[in-house]
Amino acid sequence: MSVQAVSGASDVAAAILPRRGGFAGALSDLLWRKPGLLLFLMLAPPLLWLGVVYIGSLIALLAQSFFSIDEFSGLISRELTLKTYGDLFQPANLDIIVRTVTMAALVTLASAVVAFPIAYYAARYARGKWKALFYLGVMLPLWSSYLVKVYAWKLILAKEGILTWVFAKLHLSWLLDGWLSLPVVGGNSLSVSFTGTFIVFVYVWLPFMILPIQAALERVPGNLVEASSDLGASPGQTFRNVLFPLALPGIVAGSIFTFSLTLGDYIIPQIIGTSRLFIGQAVYAQQGTAGNIPLAAAFTVVPIVIMGFYLWGAKRMGAFNAL
């Protein structure tokens, strides 16, 4: 042991060292002595930005829903009134709300059905390299450009596009035409029908459903599934009684995204869909061409309220642990 290397000088040195010189040394000491000041300095910029600018804007928006528009001059009167909410609940607007909520619910259901096998395979069977590949296989579409994805579907669903071609090659054109001739879901072509809108919504939000379900399934011990089948349960029974209840928090967590995103989207129904409006489009039209900011603001309250209830219910089901 080379003790000399370390001992010796310790007799001479002071127990308390002098402050490092300069402004940095003084500031460091000050922040150390006052951790509250440090916390304040760390939190002030993000809180100013998000708390004041963002929350302030949201409150301003909500406040505007209590203003009203003068029908003759088109000017906004800044007196508090519930008149705008009266306008919101006119039959035409209620139609929009019901249509949007129905679409959001259908999209959520379909996403869950399509997402489950992918999530289940990734969580239970994929290993090592395949696991990474599956993860990227979900992450890449999730992060790829939203508009490009919508655009790709415009190509696919167009009358002269690939889907019509596939149906023709399979001699199934009668099926497609039959579907398009149906009321409500049909239309001139898939790209101007609710069916098209629905498919694109499911496609675009699907990764948001896969990831939470996978996260929920990862936490299910594999031997639970084996135990169930050892006890004589059929695959269907195992799914109903074991897998589905355990995956449910993940499905609810994913549905928060699919539901909320569908409620607020205005680009997909504008590009692929009919001329009948969704909430997002109504907001866009009211604030833009119609210039009726109060009604636009009142429209945005609808998804906020719906999502508020949705989140409250989801929290009670323990879905936040799966996020």
């Binding site: 998000l50 963002y54 302030g56 301003a60 607020g264 989207d265 907001v283 998804p303 906020i304 999502m307």
Partner: peptide, 23 residues
Amino acid sequence: ISLLVILPIALPGIITGIALRSA
């Protein structure tokens, strides 16, 4: 604070957009 940070993407983008625009 965690909630505040997540809010801008948890709420539909159109709400964030129109809120900022009206502000």
